[in-house]
Lab assay of single mutants.
Amino acid sequence: TEKEKEVKRLAKERGLSPDQVRELAQRAGFSPDQAKQIADEFA
């Protein structure tokens, strides 16, 4: 999704850790499970 792409782009730009990616995703409105899946891509 657009929102997911945006979260991943920000995460890459900022060099976020997987935990930070998960927090960012949840703040963007993703469920905890979705946020974990997104964060796992950065693990």
Rank of each mutant, 00 (worst) to 15 (best):
F30N: 00
I38N: 02
T1I: 14
Q37L: 11
D19P: 08
A11I: 03
A35W: 01
R9I: 05
P18H: 14
V7T: 05
E13D: 07
L24Y: 03
G15W: 04
D19S: 13
V7D: 04
E13S: 07
V21Y: 01
A43N: 08
E13F: 03
A35R: 00
E2R: 08
A25W: 00
E2I: 11
K5T: 11
T1L: 14
R14T: 11
S31C: 05
K12H: 12
E23S: 07
V7H: 02
E6C: 15
Q34G: 05
L16G: 02
E41W: 07
K8R: 12
A39C: 04
D33W: 02
V21S: 01
K8T: 06
L10M: 11
P32D: 12
Q20S: 05
D19K: 11
E4D: 05
P18M: 09
A11Q: 02
Q20E: 14
D33Q: 14
E13I: 12
L24P: 02
F42H: 04
E6G: 06
K36Q: 15
S31R: 05
S17L: 09
Q26H: 06
V21F: 03
R22I: 15
K36F: 08
A11D: 03
A28Y: 15
L24S: 03
Q20T: 03
Q34P: 01
K36M: 12
G29I: 00
D40Y: 07
A25M: 04
A35D: 00
A11E: 04
D19T: 11
P18Q: 11
L10I: 15
K8E: 05
V7F: 08
K12F: 06
E41C: 07
D33L: 08
I38P: 00
S17A: 09
R22M: 15
T1H: 14
A25S: 03
G29T: 00
G29Q: 01
A11T: 00
A39W: 02
Q26E: 15
R9P: 00
A28L: 15
G15N: 12
K5P: 02
I38M: 07
P32Y: 08
T1E: 14
R27S: 14
A35P: 01
A43P: 04
K36T: 10
K36L: 11
R22T: 09
E23G: 05
D33N: 09
Q26F: 05
G29A: 01
K5Q: 13
L24N: 03
A43Y: 14
A25L: 11
A39T: 03
L10G: 06
E4L: 15
F30D: 01
Q26L: 14
R14W: 10
G15M: 08
Q34R: 14
F42Y: 15
R9Y: 03
E2T: 11
K3L: 15
A35T: 03
F42R: 03
E2L: 13
R9D: 12
I38Q: 01
D19M: 09
L10N: 10
L10D: 09
K5I: 11
A25N: 00
K12C: 13
A28T: 07
K3D: 08
A25P: 01
